[in-house]
Amino acid sequence: MKLTIGLSQINTVLGDVQANLEKHLEIAKQARSQGADLLVFPELSLTGYVLQDLVPTLAHRPNADDPVFRPLLAASQKIDMQVGFVEVDERRRFYIAAAYLSGGQVLHVHRKVYLPTYSMFDEGRFFAWGDSVRAFDTRFGRVGMLICEDFWHASPPYLLWLDGADIFLHMSASPGRGLNGSDRLESAAWVDHINAAYASLFTAFVAHANRVGYEDGLNFWGGSALYGPNGSLLVEGPMHEEALTLGEIDLTQLHHTRARLPLLRDERPGLVARELERILHSPNPNPGR
């Protein structure tokens, strides 16, 4: 089975959900007309990234009663979409979330489980921590979604892999930093490096959509990319410019790669679980030394 994935690296209007929604709908149309089956947007694509005290005013619930999700769900009749938004739960906690929309339905919502609260980041001050990492079924097979810092940690992609994901959808609003002599910022090089590594280690497809534009002094570097099960880069978006980058993937590649390299077959989650249990329950589980 073949499918075309669209990586939509957009700029956003900070705190203007309506303006960002219109851009999503426009790009969905454009992507569909160019033959895309699945469209991936960046982290917090409906709101912008450094939201701070705007968070409670921009929150939505991903269902057909919501004025923002209603048109997005309608658009998902023609193209599957992963969008980034601020989710509020029934008890008024706010999450950085990703929703997968298909055929007018919300197939899955992922709440960011790792909120960077260090250096220039302050997410833990404004958002609640997600508490689960689950793969889910789509018309293209089993998929897993992660948001930025989630995949800076090795465990969430690993869990998704064990939960059956063969297509990883990673979304970021990654601020560019680490200017040196290279043609890539350090942050861009690092993210590319680990996404290629996940594709290789999990013999899976990894699609990464990253934002562009600026918020105050921060720049977002774009460079959205798609990797195949051999770890190779399939397509890549430009740096620092808005773009819709399409890449066709052939799911039979999973068959070929895993016949050659049976990492998934040989993985031993039982061993991992036993050793984790032991580590967590040892008398001194996390020694500060």
């Binding site: 209007v13 900070l14 705190g15 203007d16 450094v50 701070q52 005290d53 705007l54 600026y214 918020e215 105050d216």
Partner: peptide, 10 residues
Amino acid sequence: DFLYLRDWGT
């Protein structure tokens, strides 16, 4: 604790 970017709304 009145925290907004200067780019708020743009």
